[in-house]
Amino acid sequence: MPILNIVNKSPLERNALASCLRIAAPGALLLIEDAVYAATRGTSTEAEITTALSKFRIYALLPDLQARAVADRVIDGVATIDYEGFVDLVAEHSACQSWL
């Protein structure tokens, strides 16, 4: 089972997402908290995610998207999940790596 990578920082403020995408082996990527901005269309970092879709299954946490008013602009190919889905993802993977 591959690793579940979790990022919680905005890609426009920190390089946590960039480092994750540069280093992590193919697997799953979950965007939570301020990292959900990475999952939105039209930002200057959009290409990082669209490119990474060939290497990672990418998820974004819906409650965090809704809080930030961006649930209506999620990049095609990124799946939205709720807290139960979050728990399922953690259970399905051998380990989690949080890119704090």
Binding site: S10, L12, E13, L62, D64, Q66, A67, R68, A69, D82
Partner: peptide, 23 residues
């Protein structure tokens, strides 16, 4: 400036994260 502009985004719904919506 920078990510600060997100503070003003229309349509914030914070029920799901159980945080006060101060927008």
């Amino acid at each position: 400036i920078d990510d600060g502009v997100w503070q003003l985004k229309k349509g914030q719904q914070t029920k799901g994260i159980e945080t006060k919506n101060f927008s």
